[in-house]
Design a protein around this nucleic acid. Structure first.
Lengths: 348, 348
DNA sequence: ATAGTGAGCACAAACGTTTGTGCAATAACT
DNA sequence: AGTTATTGCACAAACGTTTGTGCTCACTAT
């Protein structure tokens, strides 16, 4: 059996309350003598006392635990954010309960409910985003919460997102500047915030440059590898196949690369590609990959900061919405048609 | 304020114990009338009752939470294992507390202590492995535990590891068969189980093939990217530089690729490389990468199975040590000197 | 009429903490 | 000597559960 305050009380002869106060460093406040303090400390150490955090949490209504809800930890983007969040929280003395939703709203609801029952002190959530009643419920009991990566406009909640619209806009525009017109996208899960914003950015970039939006160039339906594979196969088989594909996640890109490799398509000569999310191995791929980089470190750090801030301040008033910028990194995976023309002219 | 049994008791007029029994589906056992049951269910639903798992855990000495200790979640290998573990545990009704140790034994000790205080029902640990007194302590209070990826021989604990020795042996032997003799390794954190086994496999493969072990070909000191970068730079600068490098982790490989790219070394013509851990992008790299693949799915699944099994069975007797096999996947990152000779002969 | 039976529920203790309050003994004043 | 302060600690309630036991009826059997 574990050592409890009661046990220490028993062997030292002091009451449980006294033992508790000493071990919580409240000796002065409650006028416990130095001698008593010494004895209790010694015994506690000797017996290896370890406070029961369940009991403590019950009494204090504080568990020093944060709930993290993430769509897919095995996705490098989320893994790296999770890592950072864990690190910063640890520094602040918090533990982390992690759950995967696999972009499934039912799982998300269940898991959040469970965390709530476990009395976590706060939440960092990357929501699926198709429903949000359960998150509204969370806000109601006034626990600190920050939404990550995906905003829910309807909710007055703290929120940290990357400017997906602009990221997608810039990437698309870059392709256009390089002379591409038949630009396809392989999108992720539809009706998620991230995806909507990216699609919007893509469409606006086309429209602003006078290119007709061809819905048959908009394919795909989730952020995973298989989607990338299948969608690419599909796009390559089109009679009027695109000259460029914009993949909306690193995993989609992975599947795309597999399809491209199987079909023996040459990058960037036969096809140009660009991807959302930095991929560590991007520079070392057959054709170094162009990407829209999201500031992972910032996201993780800001999430924890915002959460801690809200936990510290008593007044839960001003919710903050933070918009971070993405960065376009162009590598050799994009063919520049204009340069081709220019080169030709020079040559002639 | 949250809805408690007490509140429901108050509004329905039934005692707390009756309410509890109904909501725990023990009506029959305690002869609660159907009518009462109906009323209580209705009220609980109406008020949105959510049991306080802290109180329950305190009373029941069961939290339905498992502690996972992992060296680095952002490493794809661990991320993917974490993902699987989370998934299987969720299916079994357990939550997951995750912590990173960053291969730091002090953090590991602290975090495990914290989990213990939080009353987790079991542990899945990928230990740093340099000390193990704290894990011994864990075993003493008889909670289910499984060691993952790294074994500690001195401990009578469940354990699931990949045959690192054989994996390294086979990779090294493959290089030798292809005609390499100056084979370097970039190792990970020294004195960890995984690293020791791999080094042993490497050395034995050399010895068994009559190749002298040159300690200057054994470099590196942790599993991270920077180590791969620096160590590769070092190796490439040697006067008698190796013809092949065996990197002991995916992250090391990443750093290695960066160095190789900077130094404009050609794979596999100037240098052959092989890596431990599958890398999703391996086939699509400039030079498709050869790797020693570890069965991640099996590891995650086996870990949870073993844990659940031990939690279910009352008798905590037979600890099991499970050894999984790795698989060598050869791609174009290795030069075959013999084939070169053969080709030469044919040509001449 | 009375004992016996079972149905339907309430009481209370326990899990391990924290903390407001009270109480005895000593010390300090006047 | 008598009042007041101060020191040093113990008591008990509370956090929200679960569960063994016991109590009160109403009903049945004798």
């Amino acid at each position: 059996m574990a050592i409890t305050l009661d046990k220490i009380s028993e062997v030292t002869g002091f009451s449980v309350s006294t033992v508790s106060r000493v071990l919580n460093k409240k000796s002065k406040k409650y006028r416990i003598s130095l001698e008593t303090e010494r004895i209790i400390y010694a015994k506690a150490k000797e017996l290896g006392y370890r406070p029961n955090e369940l009991a403590r949490g019950l009494r204090l209504k504080k568990t020093h635990t944060i709930g993290l809800v993430v769509p897919d930890i095995s996705n490098p983007f989320f893994a790296s954010i999770t890592h950072l969040i864990q690190k910063y929280l640890y520094e602040e003395g918090y533990s982390l309960i992690v759950c995967n939703t696999n972009e499934d709203i039912k799982t998300e609801i269940e898991q959040i409910d469970l965390m709530r029952r476990k009395g976590v002190d706060g939440y960092i959530i990357m929501p699926v985003g198709t429903q949000f009643e359960h998150i509204k419920g969370l806000l109601d009991d006034n626990k600190p919460l920050v939404l990550l990566d995906r905003n829910i406009d309807a909710l007055n909640a703290n929120c940290i997102v990357v400017d997906n619209y602009r990221g997608a806009y810039e990437a698309t525009e870059c392709l256009i500047r390089y002379g591409h017109e038949r630009i396809a996208i392989i999108q992720g899960l539809q009706n998620t915030y991230t995806n909507n914003e990216r699609v919007r950015g893509y469409k606006d970039a086309l429209a602003d440059n006078g290119i007709r939006i061809d819905e048959s160039y908009i394919v795909g339906n989730d952020f995973r590898r298989e989607n990338g594979y299948i969608s690419t196969k599909l796009l390559l088989k089109m009679e009027n196949a695109p000259t460029a594909i914009f993949a909306f996640s690193d995993l989609i890109t992975l599947g795309m690369l597999q399809a491209i490799s199987e079909e023996k398509v040459k990058i960037p000569d036969d096809l140009s590609i660009i991807s959302f999310d930095e991929i560590d191995f991007a520079p070392y791929l057959v054709s170094p990959l162009s990407v829209v980089v999201q500031p992972r470190e910032l996201i993780g750090e800001a999430a924890v900061k915002l959460l801690i801030e809200e936990m510290r301040s008593k007044n839960r008033l001003g919710k903050r919405k933070i918009l971070l910028e993405s960065k376009l990194v162009i590598r050799d995976s994009i063919k520049n048609f204009n340069l081709g023309v220019a080169a030709h002219r020079t040559a002639s």
